[in-house]
Design a protein around this nucleic acid. Structure first.
Length: 251
DNA sequence: AAGTCGTTCAACCGCGTGACG
DNA sequence: ACGTCACGCGGTTGAACGACT
C-alpha cells in the first residue's frame, strides 16, 4: 500500500503555530467546520498539512478543551483508568470531559506515573504489614480461620482504602467484591453483580490472557465469578485488584 | 552572569484501521 | 477482493523554560 507523501515533503510548514495561523484555523472551522482535514489547510489558506491542523484544533484550539491544571479528582481518575485500560489515552480522555489524549499522556509521563509507582510501593508496604499481623493471628488461633468470614468483611478489614470500600461505594456500582485467603494459601477474588448479571470477561482480559482467565475462573451457583489464584497470580494482584475496584465505578 | 541539567508540553511521525470506490 | 484515502492513535521528539551549579 502506498502512503500519501508526508507534509514535510510538500513544502508545508512545521513547528510551533503562530497566533495568525491559529486565528485562520479557528475562523475557518467556525465558518465551515472541519469536514475534510486533508483539504482544510488548502481551503483555509494555511501552509500546514491536514494532520497538523487537526492536532492543533483537537489538542489546543477547540472550545471544548478545558485549560488549566488537572484537579486531584482528575488525576486519580487517570491513574485508575490507566491501571484498567493501559496506554489507551483516547479511551481515558473520553472519560475526562475537556481533556485531550495528548494532554493526559503528557501528565501521565511527567507526574502521575511517578505517583502511581509511589502509591504502589506504599500499598505493598501496607500489605506486608497487614500480612505480618495476619500471620500472628493465625499462629495464635488457627481455628479462627478468615475463611469463616464473609469475603466482603475481609476486604473491608484488610484492603479498604477509604472511598474504595466496596460496600460504601456501591451507590454507583452494583458490583460487590471481595478477596479472601483459602486454606491452601491461594487468593480468591469474588465478583458479584447484585442483579445476578455476570461480569463481562473483557474486564479481566486486559490483564490476563484468555488461557489464564479460563484456568483461574469458575462460576458459582449464586451467579458469582470466582477467580482462584495459584502460581500464575503474581504478588501485585492485590494492588491491581484494589485499583480496579476503584476504577470499575468509572468504566 | 553563564553554562548545564531536568522538566514540561506542543507538535511530529509512523502505523493501524475503517470507509469507499 | 483489492487498493487507496483519510483519520485517529500512541510513541517520540525537541523547543522553551526554570532550577541549579
Amino acid at each position: 500500500m502506498v502512503r500519501a507523501p508526508c507534509c514535510d515533503k510538500m513544502g508545508l510548514k512545521k513547528g510551533p503555530w503562530t497566533l495568525q495561523e491559529d486565528h485562520i484555523l479557528i475562523n475557518y472551522i467556525n465558518m465551515y467546520g472541519h469536514g475534510n482535514w486533508r483539504a482544510l489547510p488548502k481551503l483555509a489558506g494555511l501552509l500546514r498539512c491536514g494532520k497538523s491542523c487537526r492536532l492543533r484544533w483537537t489538542n489546543y484550539l477547540s472550545p471544548d478543551i478545558k485549560r488549566g491544571n488537572f484537579t486531584r479528582e482528575e488525576e486519580q481518575t487517570i491513574i485508575q483508568l490507566h491501571a484498567a485500560l493501559g496506554n489507551r489515552w483516547s479511551a481515558i480522555a473520553a472519560r475526562l470531559p475537556g481533556r485531550t489524549d495528548n494532554e493526559i499522556k503528557n501528565v501521565w509521563h511527567t507526574y502521575l506515573k511517578k505517583r502511581a509507582v509511589n502509591e504502589h510501593e506504599n500499598f505493598e508496604q501496607q500489605r506486608d504489614t497487614l500480612k505480618e499481623e495476619d500471620d500472628v493471628v493465625v499462629e495464635s488461633s488457627p481455628s479462627s480461620s478468615s475463611s469463616n468470614k464473609p469475603s466482603s468483611e475481609i476486604i473491608n478489614n484488610n484492603y479498604s482504602g477509604g472511598h474504595n470500600n466496596p460496600q460504601t461505594s456501591s451507590n454507583t456500582s452494583d458490583i460487590s467484591s471481595g478477596i479472601s485467603n483459602d486454606n491452601g494459601g491461594d487468593i480468591q477474588i469474588l465478583l458479584r453483580n447484585n442483579n445476578s448479571q455476570l461480569m463481562d470477561d473483557d474486564f479481566w482480559s486486559e490483564i490476563f490472557s484468555a488461557g489464564e482467565i479460563s484456568s483461574m475462573m469458575t462460576t458459582t451457583v449464586e451467579g458469582e465469578y470466582k477467580y482462584t489464584s495459584s502460581s500464575i497470580m503474581h504478588d501485585d494482584m492485590h494492588f491491581w485488584f484494589n485499583v480496579f475496584t476503584k476504577g470499575d465505578e468509572l468504566l
